[in-house]
């Protein structure tokens, strides 16, 4: 009976709103005993308190993560939030991860909805990154921090990712009242958590992004450079100084742990830096 009770209350709490007639139909869809059914039908308003509580909790968690996206979409966001709850619902034990589940769910739906601006998902992902990267695992200190060896992989902190957007959403003003549209511009960011636990962004060129992604995936410096250059038809010798400068920069920021290797590289920095505005807000 507990399983039937759970599924009935899940539909009542997460599903579309129901009136008294609808409640009868809803309860009929679940394996409830007569006493359980009578308890819910006898005091539906009391059970609907849970609907409000659950929704408030989940919505507040999402609101902390992607406030600008929610403000820009307005009631349209509410519609999609309702669909997420009704059609999938949160699965995670961790409230901080509900936003990621929501964004995974809405990605294909927003892509097909002309009412949702094309940059919306990029903006939501970018906002959500603050909490995602703030929560990533601790640095894994490499067993060996030997001298530069182009044939071996480099070690990065755990809290580091390369993300790609079709729009330059990271340049939008931080205000929730802002309604300007971002430029359509392929964007790659290296996102990491610094020693003070703040989330920072580093804008990368496409070639630099490909190089860092390969390094993060565990390729050696040499393989990453050759692979990235091949992808862009660039001579490795041309890219060498720029990638060396990038590694030096990442090392100085504490994102690249193979410091001894990176420090031996020289060259001018070729990135622009954006510091995250949030450490992390509210309950996770």
């Amino acid at each position: 009976m507990q399983a039937g009770l759970e599924s009935a209350l899940a539909e009542l709490v997460l599903g579309p709103p129901v009136d008294r007639e609808g409640l009868g139909a809803l309860l009929s869809r679940h394996a409830l005993g007569p006493e359980e059914r009578a308890a819910i039908e006898g005091a539906p308003e009391r059970f609907l308190v849970y609907r409000k509580l659950v929704r408030n909790t989940l919505r507040n968690a999402v609101g902390l993560a992607i406030p600008r996206t929610m403000a820009r979409l307005g009631p349209l966001f509410d519609d999609y939030f309702e669909r997420f709850l009704a059609e999938r619902g949160p699965r995670t034990h961790y409230l901080r991860d509900v936003t990621t589940e929501l964004l995974d769910f809405v990605a294909p739906l927003w892509a097909d909805d002309a009412r949702v601006p094309a940059w919306t998902h990029d903006l939501a992902r970018h906002e959500a990154l603050e909490i995602v990267v703030a929560s990533l695992g601790e640095p894994v200190v490499p067993r060996e921090l030997g001298p530069l060896d182009a044939e071996r992989p480099l070690a990065f902190i755990e809290a580091a990712r390369v993300v790609h957007y079709a729009f330059a959403v990271h340049r939008l003003p931080p205000s929730e009242d802002d309604r300007s549209a971002p430029l359509r511009e392929p964007t790659a960011l290296f996102v990491y958590r610094d020693a003070e636990h703040d989330v920072r962004y580093l804008e990368l060129t496409p070639l630099a992004a490909a190089f860092v992604e390969r390094l993060l995936a565990g390729e050696s410096m040499k393989a990453a450079l050759l692979g990235a250059c091949a992808g862009f038809g660039t001579e490795p010798s041309v890219a060498l100084s720029g990638t060396a400068a990038l590694l030096s920069d990442l090392s100085a920021r504490g994102a690249l742990l193979g410091q001894a290797a990176a420090e031996s590289l020289r060259g001018p920095a070729k990135t622009s830096d954006h510091r995250g505005t949030l450490r992390e807000k509210g309950p996770p």
């Binding site: 507990q2 899940a10 359980e36 659950v54 909790t57 989940l58 949160p90 509900v98």
Partner: peptide, 25 residues
């Protein structure tokens, strides 16, 4: 309490029936 239904998580405490079966479980 129960806070989930199958794979779905409520992030809220829902009440259990006060039965012997529930107590045993």
């Amino acid at each position: 309490a129960f806070t989930s239904a199958g794979a779905q998580a409520f992030h809220e405490l829902l009440p259990l029936p006060f039965t012997r079966d529930t107590a045993r479980r």
